[in-house]
Write a protein that binds this DNA or RNA. Sequence first.
RNA 1: GCCCGGGUGGCGAAACUGGUAGACGCAGGAGACUUAAAAUCUCCAGCCGCAAGGCGUGCGGGUUCGAGUCCCGCCCCGGGUACCA
Length: 780
Amino acid sequence: MDRSYDPQAVETRAQAYWDAHGSFRADDEAGEKFYCLSMFAYPSGQMHMGHVRCYTLGDVIARYQRLKGRNVLQPVGWDAFGLPAENAAIKNQVPPAQWTHANIDAMRAQFKRLGFALDWSREFATCDPEYYRWEQWMFTRLFEKGLVERKTTVVNWDPVDQTVLANEQVENGRGWRSGALIERREMPQWTLKITDYAEELLAELDRMDGWPEQVRAMQRNWIGRSEGVEIEFDVRGPGVDAGERLAVYTTRPDTFLGCTYVAVAAEHPLARQVAARDEAVAAFRERCKAVRAAEADVATLEKEGVATDLVAIHPLTGAELPVWIANFVLMEYGSGAVMSVPGHDERDWEFARKYDLPIVQVIAPAEGSDATCDVETGAFTEKGVLVHSGAFDGLSSAQAFDAIADALEAQGRGRRRVNFRLRDWGVSRQRYWGCPIPMIHCADCGPVPVPEADLPVVLPTDVKFEGVASPLKTDAYAEWRRASCPKCGGAAERETDTFDTFMESSWYYARFPCADNDAAMLDGRAKAWTPVDHYVGGIEHAVLHLLYSRFYHKVLRDEGLVDSDEPFTRLLLLGMVLKDGRKMSKSAGNIVSPNELVEAHGADAVRTFMMFAAPPDQTVEWSDSGVEGSVRFLKRLWNQVHESVSAGAVPAVDPAALTAAQKELRRKAHETLAKADDDYGRRLAFNTVVSAVMELSNEIGRFEDDSEAGRAVVREALELAVLVLSPIAPHVCHELWFALGHETPLVEARWPAVDPAALERDAVELVVQVNGKVRARVEV
RNA sequence: GCCCGGGUGGCGAAACUGGUAGACGCAGGAGACUUAAAAUCUCCAGCCGCAAGGCGUGCGGGUUCGAGUCCCGCCCCGGGUACCA
């Protein structure tokens, strides 16, 4: 072995070895499978520290599982469609496809330099027609199955650029390119009925114990199942037909007698109707348009409203309640209208105070409760006992729920209903760089799916951006749009919208096992490898990507293409990588380039520090000097191995004939092995694996004993240190393993068993505490 | 706004099941080696205090023999909020 550690040379040799031996090509047939996957990357062109962290974590898991004897698949691909490519195209006049492929080439090289144990033979990009054709195919199947619907949803419309903007493209209410005030606009969109699976998506969460509880909680809340009552009010007023009804949904029917007004969304049909004859209402609706479609914007708005000349008739009391239009009522949730009970709902209370609407108390604190209720000073939102509710007085909130629901149902004015916060998945995007939606619009037959034989609908890639709008929608592509109706053969138009990029990322994991199949979306290999045993990615995907994928997996299952219920058995969501306490960004000027670090210190040192700096799920603070510490550590380990090997062969350790100091070092070595096994496999605490091996190395350094037994104990400790560290710093460990005399490569090694005898102690220290303070220590 | 996290020395962190707070590392200090420097090695180091001792895990309360860890109420920072991926 070389006298000194040269990371660049070591890493080049190790990578060449793995390449030449096809070390990471997964075998479809062999042994107990372990499918390990890091969320695929968007090819921005520059690998960043977040990628380094994510892929290193995945790699550590994959390499550890391999040492444990599993047949590991760790594939890699590219989430290649998306907005940044279009922005680059508009800015630099480069076609998105060209830009994307150049970026993929650049990033592939960067990934390879880090030595991840990836099976590159299965690589694909989602912008490959061979990939997205199956997405189109599945969509047409779901259309036939009735899981696809055309629905109206709200988007941000830029009236100058005549295009739809993403939420992040709206700054202070204006389009980021045009500067024009954006408008909320309703647009017909293709949606997938994820709500059909809401119950299953929710119920399954309870059984998914390989997922962090916080993520399951987020998904539970996102799905937002509630039990309540849908209530119908008669509406009276100018221009309202007799028998017209307004539906609201409430989870608190027990407060129903305290309802003093009703509020509808600005986009509600009743609001539209009133606006036609009432200028104030029309002006209010116009103002509401200037709010971004994002929920956070709507929810943080100052609550405002406008009165209408309509009244809603309380079905139980006959009272005439004013109908208001309010900016905080969401058309997307429930029926776009709410009953307002200011005495017992904070938002309703604020609104009532602001507009001088009556506030009445109908719930009193339950007997024995120490809560107080004064609806003059604030809403009382707890459950309790009914008051001022006529025949329902004295009932508990729970009893009143049923009594009032029954009364409404008996009158045909309401029904119990389960409601979900979850909305159906709008998959249409008015953009160019995405998977074309395989539909044809026929004037006579309506929308018709493209027949299987005509798939894929290929996205033209030699495009020029004239403005900001999708080239597919311009005159230049009139020919591309022209189609004949698959049903009647008449002249028809292709859909020009493309899919949400979450469509591609919802099933890519299932495609890796059979990425070479050009005759089917998935085959038996997908069934054999899925579900993914361990999925690694950013916490920012806790809800959307991970919920859409779960839904899509169930859809694939129901089509017979996979045979599991959930796509990802175990989930590791990592925190962000920060520098100087902030997110790395160009504007903050604190971007750290993985390339330069690897050039300067080697991939192993970068990987080691990344793992060492913090536990995986926590945000991590990047430190350049910290990497230097990792280099020192790897160098020390190298020197220790060199010294041990140079001193010559050693006999086998004879555990029965060791001195106290020898025993102690051997115990430390086996404790490290045991701890690392637990940290890798159960705790996912890779930071403490690194510190444990550092401690072991420190102890080896302090151990001075040239006897044969002493050198044998050191040799065993070094072997364990190298093996334990190898998932994290694979290159240097690969070479040290051979140096230690092994003839087969470390990637073929098996995780050794701990010698229980090595862990035994002759003495322990007992601590004596008085009132929680340490007062004495006793060696026993 | 709502949902989910996080806050421990100068810095990153450890403490896994309520039982020795600060392992391991960075930065720093002292020393060894060296003509010198780098590299390497050894030692020191939470804060206040000469010391005895006291104080210490964002803030305020509580439970407990004992709380970084459990409970209640706050503050600050981060992620998500359905068209960024």
